[in-house]
Computed example of a mutant assay.
Amino acid sequence: MDIKTFEDLITWALELHTNLSRCLSECSGKNQDERASALLSYLAEHESELARITAEFEKQADPKALKTRIYDYLDNEHKRIKAHQICDDHYAGLDFESIEREVFAFHDQLIDLYDSLAGKAEIPEAKELVESLKAMEEHEAMRLASQIGRMNDV
């Protein structure tokens, strides 16, 4: 996806979460490890919820921020973020810890991208929007870490 505005960025992030959710869900029934399968199911639901939350940003954001051009200071970082847009059963063959590592790496990359964009935003409305996206991702990553920690305790 060609990202030209903050509105495009939100759409792109929403699509990443949606695609990751679908792939995790498809792989949950194919993973032979019961713990890994349960983790995949939980993560699929969590990513679906993140897609819903991300969509809310587009509805509630300042129109001025949404239309702000982003391509001038968006580097190739976003092109490196991959969430298995074409589900190739990648997660079906991974163990619990590997799934956990990959999903957290995905979220860390999004957080880093948002952080980078916040530092480059030229208008306060755009800076506030991307900082809010970053805060949401950080909060959800912490919540996810807590839930996965509980799954590990079982």
Rank of each mutant, 00 (worst) to 15 (best):
M1H: 15
E7Q: 14
I10N: 05
T11K: 14
W12D: 02
L14E: 15
L14Y: 15
H17V: 00
N19T: 08
N19K: 11
S21F: 00
L24P: 02
S25R: 08
C27V: 07
S28Y: 01
K30F: 11
Q32D: 15
Q32W: 08
D33N: 11
D33Y: 06
D33H: 11
R35A: 11
A36H: 03
L39P: 00
L40D: 00
L40S: 01
S41A: 15
S41M: 14
E45K: 04
H46S: 10
S48Q: 12
S48A: 13
E49V: 07
L50N: 08
L50D: 07
L50S: 04
I53R: 04
T54N: 01
E58L: 13
K59C: 06
K64T: 10
A65R: 06
R69I: 03
Y71P: 09
D72S: 13
D72Q: 12
Y73M: 09
D75S: 07
D75C: 05
D75R: 05
N76L: 09
H78L: 10
R80G: 08
A83S: 08
A83H: 01
H84C: 08
Q85V: 09
D89E: 07
D89S: 10
H90N: 04
Y91L: 13
A92P: 04
F96I: 03
E97M: 07
I99N: 00
R101N: 12
F104W: 01
F104D: 09
A105P: 02
A105V: 09
D108K: 13
Q109E: 13
I111C: 06
D112M: 14
L113R: 05
D115K: 08
S116I: 07
S116P: 05
L117G: 01
K120H: 08
K120C: 06
K120M: 06
A121S: 12
A121M: 09
A121F: 08
E122G: 10
I123Y: 03
I123E: 05
A126D: 01
E128W: 10
L129M: 01
V130L: 04
V130N: 02
E131C: 13
S132L: 10
S132F: 06
K134E: 10
A135E: 14
M136G: 02
H139A: 12
H139C: 12
H139W: 12
E140T: 04
E140Q: 05
A141I: 00
A141V: 04
L144T: 05
S146I: 04
Q147S: 11
I148Y: 07
R150V: 07
R150K: 13
V154Q: 11
